[in-house]
Design a binder for these strands. Structure first.
Lengths: 349, 349
DNA sequence: CTGAAAGCGCTTACAG
DNA sequence: CTGAAAGCGCTTACAG
């Protein structure tokens, strides 16, 4: 069924059918009704591609998620607690605005070409990128595209320094530095002096911020930053688990508290400590980051920094859509607060 | 940049450019090289919509996830432990086959129209539906479409009875009846005689199967099915939590074991029991279903039935793609084994 | 208010 | 082996 068929059945021209479909004002109510009736009777839906080709957008946005885990890691699909809420809320928000979402996972640097490709092929009107590494070159290419791009978790400073603050880009962050600082301050206020960190990926904006805050809060309080207390987990549960096990096996003196750059790694630490016979928070305190689904499920419940994933993804979608529809046309950036949520995983010394 | 531009630069016609893009055999190596070079130099990507309009497929499949939770439930985005692994592996498999995936969440009956719409609008070549309720009418409509549809978790019997086993459909299940039976048998073998169930949604195929198995294994063993021991959780953590709390508060005699229709509800039971001062497995044993990410994270680790989500979603993608490309053309169905994974949440009586 | 016609960027018989 | 031309199903100036 094509618009032509509808036109015939309704006794009008394709032009008129098109006008009612697109809600043009210059068609009298009776004509509109007549056409609409035929359309409904036949469950007619205009061909997206033809519309797109003829100049209408595709009403589709791309969601590109940079995976922290390796594509070939067996358990990768279970490792990303950030993923599910993000995807779900992006999809819902987009759908409610009448947009479809095309989703892609990015594992390697080459995979970034996929987003370029999707834009060039006109599959999407615009895109959202989550968890980008600090690959400015890649970003430069993307920004060069005409399609609107919203970056979630990206260093605005870098963008501005590289003069990439083009009008088709937008950045959305959470205040990870502040949140992390609050977390470490909290541990210090409880009397902890030896505080370790289970680090995320420092070539991620949020990863870098969380670590920077950790370092500077320690220094500001006259505490030394011990190399041996900084474990590299790369945001991955498995890595964190091995690192913690390694520290425990080393026989080295342990910190009294750990700040983990995300909940997944905090959960891994829980496991490793328990297996080693240490209880939380009696023997060791832990703070996480994200406040994802697992945080409150852990026993004891995890004290963590809340990243407002829902708000951020909603904002991201609204932003791309606005950019696609040219409602806004300037470089913009928003940063959401990331407050500490105190639960049961830390004790006063 | 259009194919016409490439043609000019390469000194050939659009036809030839099209031939090399589509890998037609009848173009000599030198010509191919020449054209390819220009294409690469200019990062040319053919417009998807034009290709689609001209007869090529869109290389896009739809993934429609029926949400167990309410759209407006605050925590809905955190409630679906089935979701993340599913989406991630569908996306990866599709991408590796050169397909894009359009994703949609279905909350209401009307939302099913979205899949029809996506097909009618030719946005997708085919679709995958996960967690469909037993709405045969909806399915009937979908099956009437020409686009290939793969249903995950759907009653084959119903499809065959309604003569909906058309060549554009395919069904993929896990052997939930067997898995559930194994779980309940296991509890009985440990000496449990009073076994409760935290039920899923029985108007879901898997939900119904899990419950049927529970009932019949009890009966086969001469155990009575106690109404009071059957809690209705509807697959949702929150509901399960309230139901369990309700049972505990009632002062009624408790079963010695519970079989939960999914891990999320088992996790909710963990919480409720712990708050009530009951330890697992000392005071009460629990078996879950899914073996999703949380199963092994719970303390004690959850004994559960493993649903091979990864294999199922991979199979689903391969099937739609095969159907889209007309490699297969018959109604088909696969059912994956769902074995019991014994961990630490049950004790011998 | 409305229709005929051009155009969007491809693919694919058709003819040579 | 290759080009000219028709066609895919829309939208949108243009003219009336």
């Amino acid at each position: 069924m094509r618009s032509e068929d509808i036109a015939k059945l309704a006794g009008v021209s394709r032009s008129t059918v098109s006008r009612v479909i697109n809600n043009y004002p210059n068609v009298p109510p009776e004509t509109r009704e007549k056409v609409l009736k035929v359309i409904q009777q036949h469950h007619y839906q205009p061909n997206t591609y033809a519309r797109a080709l003829a100049g209408k957008g595709t009403n589709t946005i791309g969601l590109f998620v940079v995976s922290t885990a390796d594509k070939f890691s067996t358990h990768r699909i279970y490792q990303n607690n950030y993923f599910a809420p993000f995807v779900e809320s992006v999809v819902d928000t987009a759908n409610s605005l009448g947009y479809y979402v095309l989703i892609h996972t990015l594992y390697t640097l080459e995979d970034y070409q996929k987003v370029k490709q999707a834009c060039l092929q006109k599959r999407i009107d615009g895109g959202i990128l989550v968890g980008t590494r600090k690959e400015v070159d890649v970003i430069r290419e993307l920004v060069g595209l005409e399609a609107p791009i919203v970056l979630i978790d990206y260093d605005i400073g870098e963008i501005i320094a590289s003069r990439l603050d083009k009008s088709n880009v937008s950045v959305i962050n959470s205040k990870d530095y502040d949140g992390a600082a609050e977390a470490v301050d909290y541990l210090i206020s409880l009397g902890h002096r030896k505080i370790g960190m289970i680090n995320g990926s420092v070539n991620t904006f949020s990863g870098a911020e969380r670590f920077k805050a950790y370092e500077s809060v320690l220094q500001r309080n006259g505490l030394s930053v011990e190399k041996g207390y900084i474990l590299n987990g790369d945001f991955l549960k498995q890595n964190a688990y091995h690192e913690v096990r390694g520290l425990l096996a080393s026989g080295q003196e342990l910190p009294t508290a750990f700040f983990a750059a995300n909940d997944d790694m905090a959960a891994a630490a829980y496991e490793a400590f328990k297996e080693f016979g240490l209880s939380i928070p009696e023997d060791i305190s832990i703070v996480g980051f994200d406040d994802g689904p697992i945080a409150a499920q852990l026993v004891p419940k995890l004290t963590t920094v809340r990243v407002p994933i829902y708000d951020m993804s909603k904002e991201a979608v609204q932003k791309v859509v606005a950019l696609c529809e040219q409602t806004v046309t300037a470089f913009s950036t928003v940063s959401f607060p990331a407050p500490l949520v105190v639960r049961d995983s830390c004790r006063e010394l």
